[in-house]
Simulated scan of single mutants.
Amino acid sequence: MERLPSWLRQHLAAIRAVVVLTVILGGLYPLAVTGVAQAVFHGKANGSLIEKDGRTVGSAIIGQNFTDAGGNAVARYFQSRPSAAGYDMLSTAASNLGPEDVIDSRDRQSLLTQVCARSKAIGEREGVSGARPYCTADGVGAVLKVFRDRVVSVNQACPAVPFVAAYEGKTVTCATPGEDYAAGRTVPVRGNTAAVVPADAVTAGGSGLDPHISVAYAELQAPRVARERGLDLARVRQLIGEHTTGRALGFMGAPAVNVLELNLALDGG
């Protein structure tokens, strides 16, 4: 029998290798891993789903919003932290905005203004001060653009009243919409206000799917939830404690509260 040409033998060997590896790595290995996961970690392998009254209401490892049809926070529930992904598992992402993103543009709020606006709104909702460093009283970033002959509160569009009247001997004016202030020196103004609203209440997590909030944020919300549900505040705080996880491995990270599990416990009485 005549031997096949070397180039053809090489192609046939490559095809056999592709078929064998596809069967092993694309079929047998995934089936084996899936089988072990279902047998040993059944609940976690299926997404750590939580059911109530026979229907799936969420996941213990994926956050969700507790809002009405208009996107407003439902007062009787604890609220999750902000999410740049809208808690959509198909678009999990962070905002990719950093600490230098402090000036609003025509079509987008800066990260600083987003934080300030959230803090102001949460303060109003929880009945506490929403003030925080580098934020104005009207909930935007306290940032000045300093020029040789003038100073502009760049995130406060006219006719807003600037958060400070003067800086370095110059009168501070509000920002004229559409004017380019890029040439000015950027000066964020810290102020002397301490934040009451916790950081995780106003900043989104890296994944956009965080199921937990800090104990401090849960404690901040407890009086509102107790009031809306007609419950004793001590009982609400007890439930917070029951749904607080410890530090990873006993020393990593910080204790956190699973929002969905806490809200389900409240609904269960």
Rank of each mutant, 00 (worst) to 15 (best):
residue 18 V to K: 02
residue 55 R to C: 00
residue 108 R to V: 11
residue 148 R to Q: 15
residue 33 V to L: 13
residue 34 T to A: 15
residue 22 T to V: 07
residue 110 S to I: 02
residue 69 A to M: 04
residue 86 G to V: 12
residue 139 G to C: 02
residue 123 G to A: 01
residue 124 E to N: 06
residue 118 R to T: 02
residue 57 V to I: 15
residue 21 L to Y: 06
residue 44 K to L: 15
residue 80 S to R: 11
residue 82 P to M: 09
residue 121 A to N: 08
residue 31 L to S: 04
residue 14 A to C: 11
residue 35 G to T: 08
residue 56 T to M: 09
residue 26 G to K: 07
residue 144 L to I: 10
residue 16 R to S: 14
residue 28 L to Q: 09
residue 22 T to F: 12
residue 136 T to C: 05
residue 135 C to W: 06
residue 148 R to W: 10
residue 58 G to V: 03
residue 130 G to K: 12
residue 92 T to R: 10
residue 18 V to Q: 09
residue 96 N to A: 15
residue 94 A to N: 14
residue 144 L to T: 07
residue 21 L to F: 10
residue 82 P to C: 12
residue 92 T to D: 07
residue 99 P to T: 13
residue 66 F to A: 03
residue 116 C to M: 05
residue 94 A to L: 00
residue 139 G to H: 01
residue 48 S to W: 01
residue 125 R to D: 11
residue 51 E to M: 03
residue 126 E to F: 03
residue 47 G to Y: 12
residue 25 L to M: 13
residue 35 G to P: 07
residue 41 F to K: 09
residue 82 P to Y: 11
residue 137 A to M: 02
residue 76 R to D: 09
residue 86 G to Q: 13
residue 68 D to K: 04
residue 93 A to E: 05
residue 46 N to D: 11
residue 42 H to I: 00
residue 86 G to A: 13
residue 131 A to V: 05
residue 63 G to T: 04
residue 84 A to N: 13
residue 59 S to W: 02
residue 102 V to S: 13
residue 23 V to I: 10
